[in-house]
Design a protein around this nucleic acid. Structure first.
Lengths: 209, 209
DNA sequence: TTCCTTAACTAACGCTGTTAGTTTCTAGGA
DNA sequence: TCCTAGAAACTAACAGCGTTAGTTAAGGAA
């Protein structure tokens, strides 16, 4: 087959199928040949639409970040907006956990990331935060959300008491975390988010004093 | 050469050279053949000491985490200890930024990570935190530190005003961040750490009320 | 109609992690 | 002291990787 009547590929379809592969089997399962096969095509054809494989994965990341709801920013009071946005951001990551390690590679220059940064910064400045502080708050929130999305803390523990008893005296009951890692991570996120925004609110009050 | 009188390789030497390669040229530059060449050896010889390449990178990560100072935990008052530990943890990551994306892959079952979790958890429980809360605080702190280490926020911006003016109204001056990303990230980390620990201190006070 | 661009193809390159099988040296036990 | 088991190096090879070069035919523009 050479140059079909109607194009077989387009960027959106490639990204869609690539996302499905990564979600189902992880980043390592995404090869150009595998992706091409599922698209009914040979691998080099992908290069008519993307310059490199990295560009494809970039597009996956951008699509995910683009799906984060930003409507609360600039509408709700800033502490509530920040909390709601952080939850939405984390939920988007959690829906595609296999992509998160890639998002961690290098700074986010993708359009959706910039739009997100713009919205958070704008909401904070409009609420009365000095611009320099708003930048740092946006960054700190991103740190927390990104970290919570990628490093499942509780998942690190295996359900076998004998592993911990000897070497790690305080972790005697850590093996019990194994079965509840999702709940533990969720409540750790909520606790951290609460503490973080609380701390920011206190700073804000001092600012206006 | 076959089986030399004194072994050419051992795990420590492999990890040492591998770390140097990753630090200098990034994770992608670390291939088994490249690593073997720098060790004066053929690639398959590495498999006498590690089962897979992943195990080698795991060992790099473990060595880095093992270098984090934990002495303040259980010695200093918990808020001060938490701040000092978070700074030490982040500094360790920052000393090997190329390894951080790998550390983000999958939960940390490495011995050094467990030792670290043990120390944080123990210090918080000894200070009077209920065990369930201590678990979550440790996790939340890890989220924040890990996130701050891997996602340089300011690095996402390029020093070119025209890129932002049109699409991102609030980021008019974002291009100025480009040259100062290290300082911006540092101060964002300090601000977030302050807010986070402040928020935790308030929770702790309410706990004892 | 002619011509350029587009989007598919086949073939191939050098690289990757890893395995199999071989050789030789070392260490420990009889 | 000899014998044996295992360790640690090797060579050769495999399948898969991302990517490039060059080819072909269809679509759209002049």
């Amino acid at each position: 087959m050479v140059r079909p009547r109607t194009p077989l590929l387009n960027r959106d379809r490639i990204v869609e199928v690539a996302t499905a592969i990564v979600d189902a089997e992880g980043l390592d399962a995404l090869s150009t040949r595998r992706l091409a096969r599922e698209l009914g095509v040979q691998a080099p054809s992908l290069y008519n639409h993307f310059a490199t494989k990295e560009e494809i994965v970039d597009a996956i990341g951008d699509a995910i970040v683009a799906g984060v709801d930003l409507s609360m920013l600039g509408r709700d009071p800033w502490p509530a907006a920040l909390r709601a946005w952080a939850r939405a951001y984390r939920a988007a990551f959690r829906a595609h956990p296999n992509v998160v390690p890639f998002l961690a590679r290098g700074p986010a220059r993708r359009p959706a990331s910039l739009r997100l940064a713009d919205a958070v910064y704008g909401a904070l400045v409009d609420a009365g935060w000095p611009p320099a502080q708003a930048t740092r708050i946006g960054a700190a929130m991103r740190y927390f959300v990104a970290g919570s999305a990628l490093g499942s803390f509780a998942l690190g523990f295996v359900d076998d008491p004998s592993l911990y008893a000897a070497d790690y005296p305080h972790l005697r009951d850590a093996h019990r975390l194994a079965g509840r890692h999702a709940q533990v991570d969720d409540s750790a996120f909520e606790l951290g988010l609460d503490a973080l925004v609380d701390g920011l609110e206190r700073r804000f009050a001092e600012l206006e004093r």
